[in-house]
């Protein structure tokens, strides 16, 4: 897995890291059950604060892609590969819709109409 962040990008660091991890899961570079390196080691390599890295991991935990267990580290969940690509799609949809002038209520309505 190659994880990269651009310190001069307008996208926040934790969003870049979360995006990189999500892409690695969707692309199969991180497989279910695989454990991530300790946050401190990844943070040092990316030249970011360890809290920034933990925040990215927590985002992915909330999306159901990672499970974080005390003392056992952070691992990719079994459902992650399936979820990751759709999470990426949903992000794209929301981004495009907002750029197109839709507000959050309208976006929700749009998705609900398809269900």
């Amino acid at each position: 897995m190659l994880l990269r962040v651009d310190h001069e990008s307008s996208v926040s660091l934790h969003e870049q890291i979360a995006g990189g991890l999500r892409a690695a899961i969707a692309g199969g570079e991180l497989s279910p059950g695989e454990r991530l390196p300790p946050a401190r080691q990844l943070a040092q390599g990316l030249d970011v604060n360890v809290h920034t890295l933990l925040r990215a991991m927590q985002t992915l935990r909330d999306e159901g892609l990672l499970e974080m267990r005390r003392g056992r580290g952070t691992a990719v969940t079994g459902a992650a590969p399936k979820l990751a690509s759709f999470t990426e799609l949903a992000q794209k949809l929301v981004g495009e819709a907002r750029r197109g002038g839709l507000d959050d209520k309208e976006i929700l309505k749009l998705v609900e109409a398809q269900l």
Binding site: M1, L2, L3, R4, V5, D6, H7, E8, E34, R35, L36, P37, L42, G45, L46, D47, V48
Partner: peptide
């Protein structure tokens, strides 16, 4: 290709 403000980490288990 790595911009000057870009950092990257490769990990494989």
């Amino acid at each position: 290709e790595l911009a000057s403000a870009e950092r990257a980490v490769f990990v494989e288990t």
